[in-house]
Amino acid sequence: MKRLLLTMAALILALPLGAAELGDDGLHKTDWMRDTFKDLREDLAEAKSEGKRLVLLVEQRGCIYCTKMHQEVFPREEIDSYIRDHFFVVQMNLFGDVELTDFDGEVLTEKQAAGKWGLLFTPTILFLPEDVPEGHSAAQAAVATMPGAFGPGTTLDLLTWVREKRYATEEDASFQKYHARMIEQRRAE
């Protein structure tokens, strides 16, 4: 009996904290997502005013990979707190009809924006720079795009790589090389 109780306690403690709930639109909702008017220029300005980076998280109803991210990756304490502290996350529906205004001024639905940006998979995360050049769309301006679900280590490394602007350094311009180095460092610890 004691062994059973210890096993149950270990399983409960291993569960992610604060897993996302499904919203009325069938997408996962977390409290670090921002409910905005989806004018990306305004969202970028608000993110900058908070000292954060703008992120567009594109998902769809029934996406098993979105579920994986929301149940296994995003709730991990180190990832959840990193997102909260450093990113301004705006969720989009790959097939949504909510209007948004792209950085280039074009007003279109979420699904039209996804088509314009060439997005095919969910989840897809677009990481925006602090300043978007005039006339650029979100896809043109993105400093990185994460197409699909990745494990906790890759996700945290990408969040760090973007936040620390490693993409702009000669040593770490390649995320793959940066990530490989981080894997080696974790193994050495």
Rank of each mutant, 00 (worst) to 15 (best):
M146C: 10
L108G: 06
L156R: 06
E42K: 15
L27V: 15
F150A: 12
W32F: 12
G151E: 11
L119H: 04
C63L: 08
T160E: 03
I64M: 12
G135L: 13
D25I: 04
T36I: 10
L100K: 01
P133Y: 11
D80S: 12
R3M: 03
V73I: 14
W117Q: 00
V132P: 00
R53D: 06
A19S: 06
T122H: 05
M182Y: 06
L54P: 00
G153R: 05
K2A: 15
A144C: 01
A168R: 09
G96K: 00
R41M: 06
R34P: 07
T67G: 10
F37Y: 09
T160C: 03
F175T: 01
C63F: 08
Q71M: 08
D25H: 04
M182Q: 14
T122P: 09
A139R: 09
S174E: 15
L56W: 02
Y178N: 04
T155Y: 08
D25M: 05
R181F: 06
P133G: 11
D24R: 14
V90H: 01
Q71I: 06
P133C: 07
L15I: 14
V143I: 13
V89E: 00
E164N: 11
F74Y: 13
M33V: 08
K38W: 10
Y178E: 07
E21L: 13
A139M: 09
Q140G: 09
L120G: 05
G153A: 08
A9M: 10
F175H: 01
A45H: 12
F175L: 01
T109E: 08
F87N: 00
L94N: 07
T124C: 07
K116L: 07
A47Q: 00
E72P: 01
L156A: 08
G135K: 11
A144G: 01
K48C: 11
F127V: 00
Q185N: 07
D35G: 13
